[in-house]
Amino acid sequence: MSNLIASTAPKARQLTHEEIHDIEHEKTHYPYAQAVGLEALKIVQKYQGWVSDESLLAVAEYLKLPPDELEGVATFFNMIFRRPVGKHVILLCDSVACWMLGCDNLKAHISSKLGIDYGQTTADNQFTLIPVPCLGDCDKAPTMMVGDKTYRNLTPARIDAILAECKAHG
């Protein structure tokens, strides 16, 4: 049997100067370079939007970690995106308080407006919709995050405004 990996198998890309700079900074907080794995993935995601195979291999090579081990970390945390996401990631809370206050309707609203279901990205790569178990904001339910901003006491109208604003500020 010849090599099982086809020649199209992903290869590590070059990390950017910014990524290396940030990873090096994180390294100063930990006793072993290997402990920086998760932070390095977050850094890559910050710059690239998501963690591709090529990025994951690059981080593994840089930190001298087996890619298999880093993949274990990357896939364990669902906020590390191992698939491309849109420019704006919508994290809609579907936990108990938000559910009682009608998050299902909000989800239906977003889906019909953007034409995407959970886990999908709009064709123009603007929005990705993902459910999230709790944002710790139950007294102001229903809630969601878009990017790193939290939105509270949501209504369909408010959502329309938020999405429009996101699009406008692109």
Binding site: L4, I5, T75
Partner: peptide
């Protein structure tokens, strides 16, 4: 070093980073 546990709860996966 070429084997790990990946993901979590009901999609926990045991295997390699890639086939091989």
């Amino acid at each position: 070093t070429d084997f790990s546990v990946q993901a979590s709860h009901n999609h926990t996966y045991f295997g390699r980073f890639q086939d091989g």
